[in-house]
Simulated assay, not measured.
Amino acid sequence: MLVAGAWLGSLLPDADRAGSRIYRARRLERRAWPLRIVGRLARLPLRALILLGHRGLTHSLLATAAVTAAAFALASTVVPALAHEVAAGILIGYLAHVAADACTPGGVPLLAPLSKRRRHLLPRPARIPTGSLRELAVAAALTGGTVAVTLLLAG
């Protein structure tokens, strides 16, 4: 549940962009029409976030806290025994996404709506443009490192 929550949490900050991966039906949804309907209904409330503009409020600490609290509340009603794991996963994924976007030249408005100032985790020369070869290399290195640590801890 922690991994599933982290995966979902990593997609949620980009719900403010119409073409975002959060709005795409997954393979299971495409194969089973009842799941397709459920998926579309579940995504419907997120559509309003498109009005906020990309990398705005959804990339802030306030949004991170609100989404985590909402995930915990929802999970508490659906699967109470796993609510903490789901909420922790959402928090980890959401924070990872915001932190990654804070490493780009555009940064993130971390303290929105109190401040529109964009924050960065890296100095200007080290910032990684989205969609660049550097981004792919960093993502591959981080993925490889995560897999290696997971295998070491599991073994």
Score class of each variant (00 low, 15 high):
94 Y>R: 12
18 A>Q: 12
26 R>Y: 08
72 F>A: 14
33 W>M: 11
85 E>C: 11
43 R>T: 02
100 A>S: 15
150 T>D: 03
94 Y>L: 12
23 Y>E: 01
137 A>R: 13
142 L>T: 03
65 A>P: 12
76 S>H: 13
94 Y>E: 02
2 L>D: 00
148 A>R: 14
143 T>C: 15
44 L>H: 06
98 V>T: 13
50 I>H: 10
107 G>M: 06
27 R>I: 09
140 A>I: 00
116 K>Y: 06
24 R>F: 03
38 V>D: 02
120 H>A: 02
100 A>Q: 07
139 A>L: 11
70 A>E: 06
108 V>Y: 06
73 A>C: 13
60 S>Q: 00
41 L>M: 14
26 R>C: 08
53 G>T: 05
111 L>P: 04
66 A>Q: 01
92 I>L: 15
55 R>V: 09
86 V>E: 01
97 H>W: 07
125 P>N: 08
115 S>N: 04
17 R>S: 07
65 A>F: 02
45 P>S: 07
98 V>R: 00
19 G>C: 04
123 P>H: 10
89 G>F: 09
137 A>S: 04
65 A>D: 00
76 S>C: 07
95 L>Y: 05
71 A>M: 03
68 T>D: 05
121 L>G: 10
99 A>S: 13
101 D>L: 01
119 R>S: 11
62 L>N: 01
